[in-house]
């Protein structure tokens, strides 16, 4: 039986991990490879690297990060942030990433999803969706550009369109829940789970092991992503997994 995946997410700027990460046992807390190794040892099932570099040089540095991670780790990882063209996708995957995550670029030019999926297969193309509840819409609206720009897309419609175009996985972040640590956005996740046939990664709101249990048992998410609770050592991947295992959730 397929296990539920726990995925730490690392924000990388100009080749360095940002957000003050507190691991005492590594020499350089800003080194993406060192951190990736720590998470691997803790039992992380996958990693997501989100490149938040603005400069061209920063983007180039990200490729070096991808190569280093792929050289040293034997678990899959996804790279997102600033991937705009088929060439970007090719460069990222050929340097050892397993998947790319497309967000704003996919909304702006949805054919990018199809181009990537045709070339490498759907399994390499993750579409990341930033969702915020909209009173007027009475549903969730898709935002782009790090949550700054509202779009005309309703989330379940965009998710279905993304899958139709070739997305092999949906990374769904609740902007309402992000940073709140009060649990994942179960209604949002359930709404999307119901309409797509590909795996869904829950993101935004993780504050404790119970929250992971909830998202796996109540909405049957395939994977759950978190950043700060792992970075700030409020819990560890290992702790979350043993909590889940004790309660009968299949984990690796």
């Amino acid at each position: 039986m397929l296990s539920k995946r726990i995925i730490p997410c690392l924000d990388v700027k100009d080749g360095r991990v940002v957000k003050g990460i507190q691991f005492v046992d590594i020499r350089d807390a800003g080194d993406p490879v060192e951190l990736a190794k720590v998470y691997d040892e803790q039992g992380a099932d996958e990693l997501v690297f989100l490149d938040i570099s603005a400069s061209h040089e920063g983007k180039k540095t990200m490729i070096d990060v991808v190569r280093s991670v792929a050289s040293e780790l034997a678990i899959p990882f996804t790279v997102g942030g600033g991937i705009r063209t088929l060439e970007d996708i090719k460069e990222t995957l050929r340097n050892g990433a397993d998947k790319v995550s497309l967000n704003s670029s996919a909304v702006q030019r949805p054919e990018l999803i199809t181009e990537g999926a045709d070339y490498f297969g759907s399994q390499c193309i993750v579409v990341a969706i930033d969702a915020r509840y909209d009173e007027e819409l009475k549903s969730w609206r898709v935002y782009t550009h790090g949550g700054r720009t509202p779009t005309d897309w309703e989330v379940t419609e965009w998710a279905q369109e993304a899958v139709r175009l070739g997305a092999g996985e949906i990374l769904l972040t609740s902007m309402n829940k992000d940073g709140e640590k009060t649990g994942f956005d179960l209604p949002l996740l359930e709404a999307v789970q119901k309409v797509v046939s590909v795996p869904v990664i829950a993101s935004g709101g993780a504050g404790s092991s119970e929250h992971f249990y909830e998202v796996f048992t109540e909405v049957d998410a395939d994977a759950a992503l978190a950043a700060s609770i792992f970075h700030y050592k409020e819990t560890s991947v290992m702790n979350v997994k043993s909590y889940l295992k004790e309660r009968g959730v299949t984990v690796r």
């Binding site: 039986m1 795996p199 994977a223």
Partner: peptide, 12 residues
């Protein structure tokens, strides 16, 4: 009953 495709993740 429908299930997800691709088969993606860690399996025993």
């Amino acid at each position: 009953n429908s299930y997800k495709v691709p088969h993606m993740g860690w399996n025993r």
